[in-house]
Design a protein around this nucleic acid. Structure first.
Length: 710
DNA sequence: CTAGGGTTAG
């Protein structure tokens, strides 16, 4: 915004100069004009060739490149005006090509301190800390601005201690100097330091202005401390500072982040001149609260949506599991509204693709990123790893992981979780080693991924070794260990681990034990785990079904019947699964109990054919794959009500070429579905990837790669 | 006159 203001100012200045030039142009000697043109064109040529691709920043408010501005100024003969000349220098220093700023500065015979300061900030932006410091040393004179440029440069580079040192060293300090350090602390995640310094500022000779208040308010917002917010507001009222647009927006954000949404929306309602930032602040406030509908309503009411508005809404959907909506909104943004997505958009969309497992559409997004040369940030790369891992395309995930310029914990965690889902316990251990060599500290999520992978590949001893590395194991880590012991058949040890653990076990722990009891047909431990689970999550039908399966596998039909009765009495409904598959860029959602999909006949034909082939191999295929294209939630609810009697298991097949087929089947127990997939892999004579409970399994010739699974 | 500081997403 401040840049726009400055652009407007410059624009004005150029317009004034232009008016002046009309007159001068007529009276100027011919020679000078010709020279100016020549010079202008020469600069234009030399300016556009050096590294034009690296500095594609166009000057938006003027609608032209800095070089063009320069040429015009030259044509008009206004380079002799030191103010206009500095404006041109400043343009170059801010938006590049910085080389032009350098050559212009070199040619100047009468450099003023303002020119030096413009160059100094240019060096911070385009060059290095070292160069900027060199310039600062070489300067013939320095003023508050020069010092402030140094302070803000260091602060932006994250060198806060040095920024503070220079700040203390300053011969005099202006409000802007104070604001530079204050914002440096907030931007680097040290709101407390900012608040501490702000108190010092209040006791100094310099009065905080609107900008100072905006900065401390944002510091308080990042802390989310309501008590502090109240104190600040009181101080703000006492200080008699004008509540300008920035202050008001910052206040709205602070209230929202401190959990006072009513106060925020109150302020929002009373604000007269709201712009996109104000709206975006409110939208993200509702999303933070989980009130996506209100956020969407605000979003729809907005007139001038910018990229951030779209990004906020899209990532809001992703955060709250509404991935299909995220993708629909992205399509609306991109195709209908011609809004150019940026790396933030891409990061959310790729994550959504990963959650949905839609490899084909995700690939088209990746292509779009490549074609439009959208530079991905670290988190963008991380979503890519997540996406490929979730879609079972680990090779591509690994490729991204290796190609990306920098890696953080999330990069490692995404890949580790992906490998864990595939049961690759060996590579996961290699990654843990690599991670430590890179100097990245594994976190709780890392260890969950590693233990899960080891559990799926049956590496009990390694599991214990890794578990010992965890400084403070959480319940989730214990759950992994119970799973690990349980799958390895050491159920009694799993049971005693539960009673010995230092934290209160949650449903995940007992769930692991119940699942292990099912695998190893242990009625006693199954009953023990189920008893706990029925209390912890009485609504979860899965637990009843698992226990029922254990009884059934031990041929204890009386207990099976008793459990069914219990479910009826308690009103536990078997959850109805909905499923979706991607076909030619469109997402089709299916819910059991409905037959309205427009290609129902085709789908049945395929299933029937598969069924026939299965029957010839001695299996009975269930053809009640009831499919429906669901467009909105209300309809979905209706279908749900109709089909609650049915239990649905669904499997997912990734065929060659990346096509994803999910099969919804009207089955009593999931195992039937797995049998089905095993059969398909045998019939089709190829490797089939199956995702189940977020784990991937590859099937070849009727066998699963992880032998512990069924 | 021109140079330095500010709000929203992940």
């Amino acid at each position: 915004m401040s840049n726009l203001n400055k652009h407007a100012k410059l624009c004005e200045r150029f317009r004034a100069a232009s008016r002046h030039a009309q007159h001068l142009f007529a009276t100027m000697p011919q020679r000078t004009t010709a020279q100016a043109y020549e010079r202008g064109n020469a600069v234009q040529l030399s300016g556009s060739s050096p590294d034009a691709s690296a500095f594609p920043q166009l000057i938006k408010s003027l609608g032209c490149h800095a070089v063009t501005v320069h040429a015009h100024v030259l044509k008009l003969g206004f380079m002799s005006d030191r103010y206009i000349r500095n404006a041109v220098l400043c343009y170059y220093a801010k938006y590049g090509p910085f080389l032009c700023a350098l050559s212009l500065f070199d040619e100047m015979s009468d450099r003023g301190i303002v020119d030096w300061n413009s160059m100094l900030s240019g060096f911070w932006k385009w060059s290095s800390k070292e160069d900027a410091c060199k310039v600062f040393d070489e300067m013939p004179e320095r003023n508050v601005v020069s010092w402030t440029v140094m302070v803000s440069g260091l602060a932006r580079a994250g060198e806060l201690e040095e920024a503070r040192r220079v700040f203390e060293l300053m011969p005099e300090r202006s409000v802007v100097s104070w604001n530079a350090v204050l914002s440096g602390y907030v931007k680097n995640g040290l709101p407390d330091e900012c608040l501490f310094l702000f108190n010092k500022m209040m006791n100094s000779s310099v009065r905080p202005n609107e900008t100072s208040w905006v900065t401390v308010i944002s510091a308080c917002a990042s802390k989310g401390d309501l008590q502090l917010a109240r104190t600040l507001v009181q101080q703000l009222e006492e200080s008699q500072v004008n509540l300008n647009f920035y202050v008001k927006t910052a206040l709205i954000d602070m209230y929202a982040k401190c959990g006072c949404l009513e106060k925020a929306s109150e302020m929002f309602a009373t604000m007269k001149d709201r712009n996109s930032v104000t709206w975006n602040t409110m939208i993200s406030a509702y999303i933070r609260e989980g009130d996506i509908q209100t956020a969407r309503k605000l979003f729809n009411r907005m007139h001038a949506k910018d990229v951030i508005s779209w990004n906020t809404m899209i990532s809001g959907y992703v955060q709250h599991g509404q991935w299909t909506r995220a993708i629909e909104l992205f399509k609306e943004m991109w195709l209908l509204n011609n809004m150019k997505p940026d790396e933030f958009t891409m990061s959310s969309v790729i994550a959504a693709c990963g959650h949905l497992g839609i490899l084909e559409f995700g690939r088209s997004v990746v292509d779009y990123i490549a074609e439009n040369r959208i530079p991905l940030s670290l988190s963008g790369y991380n979503s890519l790893i997540f996406f490929y891992s979730r879609c079972g395309s680990l090779e591509e995930g690994k490729k991204i992981f290796e190609e990306m310029p920098k890696r953080d914990v999330f990069s490692y965690n995404s890949l580790i979780s992906g490998l864990a889902a595939n049961g690759n316990g060996y590579e996961v251990l290699k990654l843990l080693k690599k991670m430590k060599n890179d100097g990245i500290e594994p976190d709780a999520i890392t260890y969950i991924g590693i233990l899960t992978a080891l559990s799926h590949s049956g590496q009990l001893d390694e599991g214990f070794r890794v578990f010992a590395m965890i400084k403070t194991p959480t319940v989730d880590h214990y759950a992994c260990m119970v799973d690990l012991l349980g799958r390895a058949g050491r159920l009694d040890e799993a049971r005693s681990l539960i009673s010995e653990m230092s934290v209160k076990p949650h449903s995940g722990v007992f769930g692991a034990l119940l699942n292990a009891s099912r695998i190893h047909k242990r009625v006693d431990l199954g009953e023990f785990a189920a008893k706990e689970l029925f209390e912890l999550e009485p609504e979860n039908s899965g637990n009843y079904i698992l226990l029922s399966n254990i009884y059934a596998s031990n041929r204890r039909w009386k207990e099976v019947e008793k459990l069914r009765k219990m479910m009826r009495e308690r009103g536990v409904l078997k959850t109805v699964g909905s499923s979706w598959l991607e076909f030619r860029g469109k997402i089709h959602r299916f819910v059991s109990g409905d037959q309205s999909h427009y290609r129902l006949d085709d789908i049945y034909k395929v299933l029937e054919d598969l069924g026939k082939r299965m029957r010839t191999m001695g299996y009975i295929a269930d053809r009640s794959c009831v499919l429906r294209d669901v467009e909105d939630e209300e309809k979905e609810e209706m279908v749900r009500a109709h089909s609650e009697k049915l239990a649905v298991g669904f499997g997912l097949l990734v065929l060659e070429g990346g096509t994803v087929i999910r099969v919804v089947k009207n089955l009593r127990i999931c195992e039937d579905c797995h049998v089905f997939i095993k059969m398909v892999s045998k019939l089709e004579k190829r490797v089939i990837m199956v995702r189940d409970n977020n784990r991937f399994h590859s099937f070849k010739d009727g066998k699963c790669s992880c032998n512990d699974y069924w």
